[in-house]
């Protein structure tokens, strides 16, 4: 991964990685790059990470809501409107079609959407971090 990114600003990228490694070892931060205020980088970095976490969480919650309504609403629907369960599709009752068959592709579709959108969030975050400083 790193080797492919040589053309982008190497300075900022290494700083973030250093912060991760050092903080996880519990070491004190030292200024290695004379041109960079590491502490400030951390504060900025932390704000950015908060933004990323919030974006990913809200994405996960939104897709969770789709499943909660789409699948979780079914028992309630069948309970308040029993006539719905008597509808048949090709001779099979609707609850069997929905639960036994269609629910699985639906779950995969939601999962696929999540993977795409979550990766886009991460790409945005990476672009933001690696943007050359002005």
């Amino acid at each position: 991964m790193v080797a492919a990114d040589d053309r982008v600003s190497a300075r900022t990228r290494i700083v973030l990685a250093d912060v991760v490694r050092r903080e996880s070892r519990g070491e004190q931060l030292r200024t290695e790059h004379p041109h960079t205020e590491l502490t400030e980088q951390t504060r900025v970095g932390e704000a950015l990470v908060r933004g990323l976490v919030r974006a990913q969480l809200s994405l996960a919650l939104r897709l969770w809501l789709v499943v909660a309504v789409g699948l979780g609403g079914l028992p309630w629907l069948f309970a308040i409107a029993p006539s719905v369960s008597r509808v048949t599709v090709l001779g099979v009752h609707l609850p069997w079609v929905l639960l036994g068959g269609l629910s699985f592709p639906f779950l995969v579709l939601v999962g696929w959407a999540y993977v795409r959108l979550a990766e886009r969030n991460e790409q945005d975050f990476t672009d933001l971090i690696q943007r050359p400083e002005r």
């Binding site: 790193v2 991760v20 903080e23 932390e46 990470v49 990323l52 976490v53 790409q123």
Partner: peptide, 15 residues
């Protein structure tokens, strides 16, 4: 906790 969150959520491209 800040460092842990960074580790949990930062994409691999930044490591």
């Amino acid at each position: 906790v800040g460092a842990t969150m960074l580790r949990l959520h930062a994409p691999e491209a930044l490591r």
